[in-house]
Design a protein around this nucleic acid. Sequence first.
DNA 1: ATAAGATTGTGATGGTCATCACGTCGGACT
DNA 2: AGTCCGACGTGATGACCATCACAATCTTAT
Lengths: 260, 260
Amino acid sequence: MLLARRASPANFAIIYGMLGSAEDTMAGQFSNSMHSENCLTCKNRHADWFCNLSPQALSEYDALGMHMVVPSGSTLFFEGQAPRGISVLCAGHVKLTTSSKDGKTLLVRIAKPGDVLGLSAALLDTPYEITAQAIDPVQIKSFQRQDFLRFLERHIEGSMHAAKMLNDEYRNALNDAIRLALSASISGRVARLFLEMTAGHDHPNSHFTLSLTHENLASMLGTTRESVTRVLNEMKRKKIITIKGTLVTILRKDTLELLL
Amino acid sequence: MLLARRASPANFAIIYGMLGSAEDTMAGQFSNSMHSENCLTCKNRHADWFCNLSPQALSEYDALGMHMVVPSGSTLFFEGQAPRGISVLCAGHVKLTTSSKDGKTLLVRIAKPGDVLGLSAALLDTPYEITAQAIDPVQIKSFQRQDFLRFLERHIEGSMHAAKMLNDEYRNALNDAIRLALSASISGRVARLFLEMTAGHDHPNSHFTLSLTHENLASMLGTTRESVTRVLNEMKRKKIITIKGTLVTILRKDTLELLL
DNA sequence: ATAAGATTGTGATGGTCATCACGTCGGACT
DNA sequence: AGTCCGACGTGATGACCATCACAATCTTAT
């Protein structure tokens, strides 16, 4: 099994065992995943990932960062913490959330491979605005804040990619705000979310996989678990959608659009 | 009176008279405002504005863009339009909104001098995500999309500034989403907004100017004009805040924080 | 000064949804 | 098999707020 090189002293050591839940299941869980410790030979790199760089830049990038593996359930960083570094997600998914003091949580988004974590906090050098928790076994390439910023300053392609990433984050956050503000009813918010999911280039048309619990959905929609359950069942009852496992199919897109 | 050089053919001509309301009042309304047509000699430039550039970059920047003046009330661009260019705001304020088909509107933010308008749409080359309407007489420096992008690619300081601007937009949108999602009650959202306003570096402590109508506030808070009126009066009645004209004073910050 | 329009104030009413409470289901581990 | 635990389903109730309707101010134009 591929094990990550150790993190730079004190910088990322914290992330191991933060939640303590999954350490004992680490052995073997990466055994058959396709991944590489070397960005130059990495097969997973994709056109619109941050790490899609020219050979020279890529080799500097590779040398600068630390390859790491994080078990599912671990928290990479918490809202409010001082920024410790920047990570580019190579594999796995990370849940990004913010919470209020009374325990309510907003699920901001699920980060996918290619995304950059902690970019905003690092640029502003202010505390993390969100909490990042691995929901799969995750591989990341980690950088010291200053290393990463200097890399951006040296490589225009890097800073253009960073701008693209920030732009994506902006659009996503704006979408969240729009969904919450412009659809007063819960069914409207669900409809909007589902239409966004199909608009995204997942499946060609009217179905997509939704691996979120009702609790998670509620937390994206600013509502409660019970209300999500009710709305979803109502939609199924009215044959607007069907749900089989994690696969959601939209049967009547026009009806969904009426709910906005 | 300083008049803008004419816009490049067909590109910005549209913005004049879009709303048709203010053209006849243009004469004289800028007569005593401090501004310059030349970025190199412009006294208004500020450290964290986009146009805070090194002398070489600045002179290229100045040559590349078109200085323009837009009357209050005009719309610079509409949500859904193909991006026509990028503008850096030199003076005045611009209201940024999105709307749903049924007329509900989300006030995303009020752009201030130094902000870049249309950056996200230009980077992605997708339709504007928001509508931009001048609420003051506004001066802008306008660029063709390609010119601006090439400028960014040539000048690392430019792309770093662009990243900073996008980051600000991201943080702002995220804040909007948080306000809407984590504070269920209207009073909670008002409280959150007011605490944000004081946290911002306006006045040192517990008061700030609020030049928004109740209608505008409602549109930032995802609620109605009437509810805003009621909550504001309730807060005044309970001596949590006072409002004199546009000046809001927070009397009991702790009580506001309880409402979140 | 007066009219016209925008903004703010306020009551009444009905619907939507948060909350609480509990029941059901299905997978994981022993 | 049985237990445990997280996820899902569902009813009852009351609070909060959107909506409608209209009155009272405050602004601006002519």
